[in-house]
Amino acid sequence: MMGMKRIYKNQLLFIVALFAVALYLFPLYWMYTTSLKTDTAIFAIPPQLLPSSPQWQTYIDVWNGSNIVRYMSNSVFIATGVTLVTVIFGSGASYVLARYRNVWIDISLFTVLMLQVLPPSLMVTPIFVAFASIGLLEYPRIATILAFSAKTMPFFVILCRAAFMTIPRELEEAALVDGNSRAGAFVMIVLPLARNGILVAALLIFMQGFGEYVYSASLISDNRLQPASIGMTNYLQPNIVTWNSIMAFAAIYITPILAAFVLLQRHIVNGLTSGALK
């Protein structure tokens, strides 16, 4: 009796999960199919679930005609910059937050969490004014990297601190007694053991940086320096909206990152859920 009940319950949960997954993945599916449809097929009623005659030419046109390579290089540049800044400053910070316990640490942690709450659209105006006054807007991509790193930092610090907390303090103490300095013990013992956690957090930060929109939109005015997230909106013109081109652009933009995520998902999940020592 109990067994049967459990099986029904599991099946029900499975169906709910499938439904949720379908709901989340539908836009992705619609992006890929729309990118392959003709202009008329896009607005056909009833909508076509699969394009009747896939228009691969759209991809070739977008690749050749929209500077997508330049836009994506800028995206990679910004994402890499954000990741480097966040990892370099965030690792040290999260180590300190993991190792020391006092009132100031608690206050810092709370402040860090507070930062996570503030939306970029709210922060961007004061940041713009501040950056303009110190001349940082001369280097708009650097400005974007710095501004967005401030946004990714709390997320990174929280993930990374959890990774450091799983490493017993005695390992470091053993290294100190064995002849290491504090910094040496951090580099030779703590970092290698926290490596998985840090890499996973860095990867998630990279993906966020790759899709960044709000800061780029306000801080980068030169078209040649804009990332793909901005480049895509160039298709949204007042009179004609070429949906299939936008969707092809979007597909080219996100497929690499999606592929990376799928390939690494096991590592990501492991890195997020298990300690360094298991």
Binding site: E170, A174, A175, I189, L193, L277
Partner: peptide
């Protein structure tokens, strides 16, 4: 020093 937990580098 020999630690109670041994503190071997994993």
């Amino acid at each position: 020093m020999v630690f109670q937990s041994y503190a071997l580098y994993p």
